[in-house]
Nucleic acid binder design. Structure first.
Length: 715
DNA sequence: CCCAATTTTGTTTTT
DNA sequence: CAAAATTGGG
């Protein structure tokens, strides 16, 4: 046991060897959080306090779960695969598969990802003849998921206004549709598990007496439902060991509640958090910058990271001419780092939104630098893959209307919009799935085409019963005509065909728990871990990803790009202080990814949906103490700009802007408007005659004004 | 019914 | 600048 514990600092040691009761570990960035978590599991098992089967460990990403398994396997001889280590969603899926009858689900139930869910909602709106103008599918989706994440079903909701009433009705209808089709969305996995456990006392008791030790990673990201689920499983007697960092809470937009950390202390009678404050990752200057940034936030649990490492290098700052210029700068620096012996794989370029990778990728291709983009459109989300998986879904469960609609006419087989509409009408009338309606269709041209499709799926199912997973996928690609369709298509089909081949490989490399259920398990895995599966992983390549995707990772050198008001912090967060604080935590996460060297970059002009924008530099750059910075760009000095006053951009006149013809106006200028009064120009877009200015009015707030119509004059 | 061309629309982050 | 939705000629 001494082996496990050597090298831990006193705080880490205290956390690892915490007695068999609940605890909250407040673990700063780079403080050895994952190590503490895995070492504790190993220690508990090695000291005989619990068997591997008595441990429940929950993470947020599949990557984190895998890492925990790998590290644990290296520490102690134990079959980590059989342990309950996984994401909330993965574990709930496992639970529901085991208890599908109690959950009222078919054994073959499938999981809808976000896009599938949205398609299902669109279809629902159409079938109920609800205007998607008034009820945007996106809004309905948010309503449903928001409520599910709070543990609330439609039948317990009520409202006085007609609009909300309709939303509740849609929520109920959506759940009914999913139930009919045998599918569950992400939030449903959790809610359904929770309901099964809370209704079935015997079952709950079984799991409670089994999981004596429950460990949760990234606890700050749990939502209400997840916390309720944990409380249910922990009961009174089990030890809930939660590790988290309120400063790294960046998922409030999907229901995460940092407040769960305080609730945990109260609900489980924990005296106070154990703090891990020594940082082993970053050089001093980087840490100082991070601490200075996060200090601007209110209501923190509070902690101050420190390091024994020296100051290290200054933080490099570059204010580029344009997004293209910024990308070129990054390429040049990366090449220089490479010449100095840095590994590309240890260098990351981070950005706020996925769309920003475009300009970067363009420059990287020109510079002939190998790179790897994480996130974005992931393998299992590509259209050709989703088409193929839809056939696979139909083999497993033909009542999956989503899947059927997706491929019933792909490739084209004479089943057009009219036929599909007829099918939908029939299914609604008879209260059966589209598949059943298709099976029952009579005679005629349309019915003949439908019959052929039904035959195709039936034959695929029959023939696949003797085949393994990879053979099944291969068969379906051939027999459905999907492969032939992409082969016939001349351009851009090459990559798609390669992806389809890769899908066969993925199937061949998939090892199900229960071989009988290989198809069902494979489909679940595809929904739950849509990404990760990307080719050319081995190569030494520059790492590109969003800041969100970078959480939990670390790199020798980090570029935080696109540091502009409106982008980072994102403009959607401007109106709400909570949102702005979340953006700042995001910046904190970005900065603390770096071990040795940190670059902050911004651009003075950026293309956004086809138009140029001229944003100002992000307030977050100004929140980094100036003495830590080393400015690389010639044009701008990193002088602090206050963002707290009403007319913030006046005390520092911006540099003259290239190619920004704003009809005599400039960013930072004070203006008056006949109706809105006094304001400050903070952003602009367009060019030539079509120029729009973003103005912060003292009385009326933020407005976009079109210079062709707005009566604006200099103040 | 099919396909291509055109218009419209929209954009944060993700399990 | 894309993807998605819509239209119109075969």
């Amino acid at each position: 046991m001494s082996d496990l514990l050597t090298g831990l600092n006193p705080e880490q040691l205290s956390a690892v060897t915490w007695p068999a009761k609940s605890a909250l570990v407040l673990a700063g960035a780079g403080s050895g959080k994952t190590r503490v978590l895995t070492t504790r599991i190993a220690w508990l098992i090695q000291t005989g306090q619990v068997s591997p089967a008595g441990v429940l460990a929950v993470t947020f990403t599949n990557k984190a779960a895998r890492e925990m398994q790998t590290r644990l396997g290296a520490m102690i001889p134990v079959n980590v695969k059989s342990m309950w280590i996984g994401t909330f969603h993965g574990l709930c899926n496992r639970f529901l598969r085991a208890h599908y009858r109690d959950a009222g689900l078919p054994s073959t139930f499938q999981i809808l990802d976000s896009a599938d869910q949205q398609a299902a909602i669109k279809r629902l709106l159409k079938s109920l003849d609800v205007s998607d103008e008034k009820f945007p599918p996106r809004a309905v989706q948010n309503f449903i998921n928001g409520n599910k994440e709070s543990g609330v079903r439609a039948d317990t909701l009520s409202a006085h206004d007609a609009y909300t009433k309709k939303l509740i009705e849609l929520y109920a209808a959506y759940d009914a549709q999913c139930q009919r089709e045998g599918v569950v969305d992400f939030a449903e996995l959790l809610l359904r598990s929770y309901e099964v456990l809370s209704r079935n006392a015997a079952l709950a008791e079984h799991y409670k007496s089994r999981f004596r030790f429950i460990l949760v990673d990234e606890f700050q990201d749990t939502n209400r439902l997840q916390y309720a689920w944990l409380k249910l499983l922990a009961g009174r007697d089990n030890a809930l060991f939660a590790v988290g960092d309120d400063d790294q809470s960046i998922y409030a937009f999907r229901g995460a509640e940092v407040g769960n950390m305080r609730s945990l202390l109260a609900d489980f009678g924990i005296d106070g958090p154990v703090r891990l404050e020594q940082n082993y990752r970053s050089a001093g200057n980087i840490l100082t910058a991070a601490n200075a940034l996060i200090e601007k936030n209110d209501g923190r649990l509070g902690k101050n990271l420190w390091t024994e490492a020296g100051e290290g290098e200054p933080i490099r700052l570059y204010d580029a001419y344009s997004d293209g210029d910024e990308a070129e700068f990054i390429c040049d620096e990366v090449k220089a780092l490479q010449r100095d012996g840095w590994n590309l794989a240890d260098i990351a370029v981070l950005y706020r939104s996925n769309a920003q990778s475009r300009a970067l990728e363009h420059a990287l291709v020109n510079a002939k630098l190998p790179y790897r983009v994480y996130g974005g459109l992931r393998f299992f989300e590509r259209q050709e893959i989703k088409h193929a998986l839809a056939y696979l879904r139909l083999i497993a469960n033909p009542d999956d209307d989503n899947a059927l609609l997706r491929v019933i006419n792909i490739p084209a087989r004479g089943i057009g919009a009219r036929t599909v509409e007829g099918l939908q009408a029939a299914s609604r009338e008879q209260g059966v799935s589209l598949w059943q309606a298709a099976c029952a269709s009579g005679s005629g041209r349309a019915a003949a085409s439908l019959g052929k499709f039904v035959l195709l799926i039936d034959q695929l199912r029959a023939r696949s019963s003797n085949l393994n997973l990879a053979e099944t996928v291969s068969l379906l690609l051939d027999d459905s005509g999907l492969k032939a369709m992409y082969e016939a298509d001349k351009k851009e089909s090459e990559e798609r065909l390669a992806n389809l081949d890769e899908l066969i490989n993925a199937a061949a490399g998939f090892f199900p728990q229960d071989p009988e259920q290989a198809v069902v398990e494979f489909l679940s895995a595809a929904s739950l871990e849509a990404g990760e599966h990307q080719a050319e992983a081995g190569q030494d390549a520059l790492q590109l990803m969003t800041v969100h995707a970078a959480k939990g990772l670390e790199f020798d050198a980090v570029f935080v790009s696109g540091l502009e008001e409106g982008l980072f912090p994102h403009e959607n967060s401007f109106n709400d202080p909570k949102g702005l604080e979340e953006e700042r935590r995001l910046m904190y996460v970005a900065v603390t990814r770096a071990r040795k060297r940190l670059y902050l970059s911004s651009a003075q002009s950026r293309m956004l949906h086809g138009l140029s924008r001229y944003p100002i530099r992000s307030r977050f750059v100004d929140e980094v103490p100036g003495q830590l910075l080393h400015v690389l760009s010639a044009t701008v000095k990193p002088l602090p700009v206050s963002h707290n006053t009403r007319a913030p951009w006046l005390d520092q006149p911006p540099p003259s802007r290239p190619s920004a013809n704003l009809k005599g106006f400039a960013i930072g200028q004070s203006v008056t408007h006949a109706k809105f009064g006094l304001g400050v120009v903070i952003d602009a877009e367009g060019g030539g005659d079509d120029v729009r200015l973003h103005i912060n009015f003292a009385e009326h707030g933020l407005k976009w004004l079109d210079l062709r119509y707005a009566k604006l004059s200099a103040a």
